[in-house]
Design a protein around this nucleic acid. Structure first.
Lengths: 340, 340
DNA sequence: TTTCCACACGCAAACGTTTGCGTTGACCCT
DNA sequence: AGGGTCAACGCAAACGTTTGCGTGTGGAAA
């Protein structure tokens, strides 16, 4: 078990000083060509790699980006991470991913952990609990210590920082417009409770689209689901309560759950009921029928977020005291679950 | 922008030495009660948090586990990560996740990066390319430097280290047995090319089950798919070439793709053809009909892997020179895609 | 008054780097 | 021979911790 070789060991072995070794490896003109080559050969032989920890300590930066997401087992978030990694790696940054599991406490712990030396900046989508409690002290504290933060997807309006979002309302509007253009009029929405920002916004877009087409909005056509784990019962009861010719679901799970219930009642999609989802994930693509959906372009979100963060990280700290909110365009992916 | 406060600053402010501050915060009896309380109050006020980087450098350990997986956008791997995080966090470890994107080079880079100071040990499922090239020098090197490695799922037999796997062959056998018990005899397998270890093993299990039931194995009933991205054409041609009464797919994607093709040809699942998959993911659960499948218990794999690694990390380095291979039991999750 | 012992604290080294500056020694010029 | 120059290298500080050991002060016992 050969331990990692350090500058000190090389220096001792070659009978020179540590600084000579360090300079030789950096091709400093201060060191003679002879020595430089000798040192380099030796370093190669022993597979010398500078110790990142020591470098971080010295440089006061880690060259790593901390990403905190509510759930790791979630297709949308992982695509975002993919985007973050892509640009981060290209710029020489590493990416550390932590999941908060939608727990406020774990979000705080992870954040403090990463903030105390492990990351230079953060890309975050906040936990459900955090949105509920409206307690953002951990994020504010991190920012006040000079570490940039970029929020995405589930953002917090009150926080002054860079943000990457989609126009949820507009996306929802697109979805409903599409349904209307296919002749649907009795359009239901399967949404979440209002404290989830995206659920609220998508409901807003739904209502806006209805108004734009002079379709009366009806309270009974709106379902706000609290307990996502047990959404099936809620959706079943809701769908039994009224006749709909179209359903707009704010996520994949609600969409396929609705589909299941409709099938069980002998309905056909899209002939009897059109169905449209939000988030273009695995389910939408492979479901039968494949689901028309609003794509959030997760990877692009990740890329933009990483770019924003790195700009802040590398920019002149004084000149960059302005914050941007990037809005990624959603797009309608038309598939088989809506009428032609 | 108040910068992070260090021991030095507290010391200066309180006009004591750095060591006094450090000891006071650790409740050392060396320091008078007065001073201890003063220091602690000050530290709380300024929200002092020890710098992890400095600690890592001093202690020569980082208390973080590096996880390297082939794809981040993959349900099975993320469930494994969930398990790893669960036990790692419970034991005070952090988890850094990097994806190799199935690229050998990126796997090496990530590994070297994490090995040079960022992680104490590794949990890895190797990239497809790595399995092809059979080049494991990066892993061997890391181990020879004294950093423990735990391999899971896509493991490497030649490497001497801890491993967590499922009995792929046995799992496949379970699947085929189930099909046979439901009266199926013309059973096809949708597998991957042989250099993917799990594909090969599952094929082995398939053959073993057939033999055990005296069902002749037929070359034409086996499809080995090379290009996963474009599996649809291959599967379509394969399914047209013969009549099957059951299909065993080694992953979810192959299963739902087959289902799609069968539907398009007017076949019913499970009445005309029974379908069984591998990996109990989102798709299997929400597909219509929901898919009978072999669950790999990803979360448990992650938990076991993390436990093995932490044992090595914290154990007496001499006494732990033995390596275990943990085999997680697979289980059959019976749903609607196979006959009752 | 001297001696001794706690108590309370500071010094300094160590972890592995980087880098400005000081220090050698050889050689050349006058 | 003395002074100067320059190439080649080492010293030391710094990043933020921890910790063994040394040290100074005070009071009490003899």
């Amino acid at each position: 078990m050969k331990q990692k070789v350090t500058l000190k060991q090389i220096a001792k072995e070659l009978d020179v000083s540590i600084s000579t070794v360090s300079k030789a490896l950096k091709d400093s003109v201060e060191i003679s060509k002879d020595t430089r080559e000798k040192v380099k050969a030796f370093a190669k032989l022993y597979n010398y790699k500078p110790n990142n920890i020591a470098l971080s300590l010295k440089n006061r930066k880690t060259k790593t980006i901390g990403v905190i997401i509510p759930e790791i087992v979630h297709h949308f978030f992982t695509t975002v991470i993919g985007g973050v990694e892509k640009v981060a790696n290209a710029k020489g940054y590493n990416v550390i991913i932590c999941s908060s599991n939608n727990s406020f406490d774990k979000e705080v712990i992870n954040m403090e952990m990463l903030a105390s030396g492990s990351a230079d900046g953060f890309i975050i989508s906040v936990a459900k609990e955090t949105q509920q409690r409206k307690d953002y002290h951990h994020i504010e504290e991190t920012m006040s210590q000079g570490m940039p933060v970029v929020l995405f997807d589930r953002i917090i309006d009150e926080l002054v920082c860079d943000k990457v979002i989609i126009d949820d309302a507009k996306g929802a509007q697109k979805a409903v417009n599409h349904l209307v253009s296919k002749g649907c009029a009795k359009i239901a929405i399967l949404s979440t409770v209002d404290y989830i920002s995206v659920g609220k916004l998508r409901t807003t877009g739904y209502l806006r689209a209805l108004r734009a087409h002079d379709i009366p909005e009806r309270e009974e056509f709106i379902l706000k689901i609290e307990d996502i784990e047990h959404c099936e019962e809620e959706i079943a009861a809701f769908l039994a309560s009224n006749e709909f010719d179209a359903i707009f679901a704010v996520n994949e799970l609600f969409a396929v759950t609705a589909a299941k219930i409709l099938y069980a009642r002998g309905k056909s999609i899209p002939n009897d009921v059109s169905l449209i989802g939000f988030t273009d994930g695995i389910l939408s693509k492979h479901f039968i029928p494949s689901l028309t959906t609003i794509s959030q372009h997760g990877e692009e979100m990740g890329e933009r977020a990483a770019k924003l963060l790195i700009d802040k990280l590398e920019g002149d700290p004084l000149a960059t005291e302005e914050y941007k909110t990037v809005i990624i365009d959603t797009s309608l992916v038309e598939r088989q679950s809506t009428k032609k």
